[in-house]
Amino acid sequence: MNVFRLAGDMSHLLAIIILLLKIWKTRSCAGISGRSQLLFALTYTARYLDLVTNWVSLYNTVMKVFFIATSYATIYLMYLKFKATYDSNHDTFRVEFLLLPVTILALVLNHEFSFMEILWTFSIYLEAVAILPQLFMVSKTGEAESITSHYLFALGSYRLLYIFNWIWRYYTEEYYDLIAIIAGVVQTVLYCDFFYLYFTKVLKGKKLQLPA
């Protein structure tokens, strides 16, 4: 554990808390892509099945349980409790265009052709692109609430901080995992456009609005 990894995890934690608080306090999930949330739940389920086979630490276990539990809680809030506020007309990204290539890629490019390893690889690739339905929704409606922007910023920062963690680990432990690194870089790059708008608009008190 190093400071970048911890900061990344905290950023990820913060993103989820912001999202749940937004939905709970406003009693609405308007502007949030249910499809992205479903992909995240699938990501964490596939990756953290090793909860039952591989003990790392109490921290690791608590975080994994938190990520799985909150991803399903979000889906419950969006598709059941506050279903009436879910903006499904604008949430139209075709997730099969992500799931199919990610599955094939996981079967071809992995560290080891075993069930758990392929699930892990699938989750890494899927996480990299899981935010696309959400970004697509923002671009379709042309705007996002400030709270949604803060959520996206925290979520995007998490993988960026992990990149610094990987650089750190490479120099201090000579450890690196190419699958995680390349997918993490792709994931971060997808947020670049959003980061730019976040710094130039949201932080200056303006609403995130895309030019027409």
């Binding site: 990820h12 690791n60 994994k64 690196y176 699958i179």
Partner: peptide, 10 residues
């Protein structure tokens, strides 16, 4: 040679 993956990260 790439080191053995540890998957200790989240």
């Amino acid at each position: 040679e790439e080191p053995e993956p540890d998957h200790d990260e989240l």
